[in-house]
Design a protein around this nucleic acid. Structure first.
Length: 245
RNA sequence: AUAUGUUUAGACA
């Protein structure tokens, strides 16, 4: 019952975290199998409330005497650290992960590539992408979205376009998020003509434009003062009966 | 009751 409450709790006071750690240890001592998932749930909740130091204590418990942390444990914590702006610490945990023979998966890499891109360090994202190749970790559409977004943010539009073309090589086909991301990058770089061409391309590829697509295009041409184009995208959006999800 | 991606005017802090 105490255990049940812990797993359903929305937030924790620091005293409660101490109690939780003791409870999990006691359960293990009494012969219960306490799986990594229960630690993962607590780590996720603690990160969401900004208590990354407490989350780190749980990871340490796992490494010392608890269930072996799995790829979800590390990815959860890495994501939580990044969201709190602790990207450096996230990379330290990434190293800890490897040192403990836990192989990062696509999601682990995607999380890191996303956050380095956000803080303008896509160079590091590209290194991670290379590392994925050497570790035979297959990139997916999320990987490419993060790379394209990060490259555009760093002003490296040509390389972003290259990544877009590389999708086919990887056996992937661009989805609406990939198109939206690239159109946003082009628009913010003043290349709204190309963004408009992508709208045609996505349609001919059978990818349905959504509300974000049109918001992105309208924002792009709007900032260039092309009110006529903004209206035409708006009209097209209405005619297509786009609805927010 | 566990982990990753795209657009933004305003208000709040």
């Amino acid at each position: 019952s105490m255990f049940y409450k812990l797993m359903n709790a929305k937030d924790f006071k620091s005293g409660q975290v101490r109690e939780a750690r003791l409870l999990l240890k006691e359960m293990a001592e009494r012969g219960w199998i306490v799986g990594a998932i229960y630690y993962n749930i607590l780590i996720s909740k603690l990160c969401r409330t900004g208590q990354t130091a407490q989350a780190c204590c749980l990871l340490e418990d796992m490494l010392e005497e608890g269930p072996t942390p799995d790829v979800i444990t590390y990815s959860t914590f890495i994501s939580g650290l990044c969201k709190g702006g602790q990207v450096t610490e996230a990379f330290q945990i990434f190293e800890t992960m490897k040192a403990n023979n836990c192989a990062p998966n696509t999601i682990t890499y995607n999380t890191l590539i996303h956050h380095v891109g956000k803080v303008g360090r896509i160079v590091d994202g590209c290194k991670l992408f290379e590392e994925m190749k050497t570790t035979h970790t297959r990139p997916d559409l999320v990987t490419f979205t993060c790379l394209i977004s990060g490259l555009c943010k760093a002003g490296r539009i040509e390389e972003a376009l290259h990544k877009f073309y590389d999708l086919k090589t990887e056996g992937l086909s661009a989805d609406v998020v990939i198109f939206n991301t690239l159109m946003d990058g082009l628009g913010k770089a003043g290349r709204t003509e190309e963004a408009g061409e992508l709208l045609s391309l996505m349609k001919s590829n059978g990818v349905r434009p959504d509300l974000v697509t049109y918001n992105t295009l309208i924002d792009g041409v709007g900032k260039e003062g092309r009110i006529d184009m903004a209206f035409s995208y708006f009209e097209e959006m209405k005619s297509r009966e786009i609805t927010p999800d």
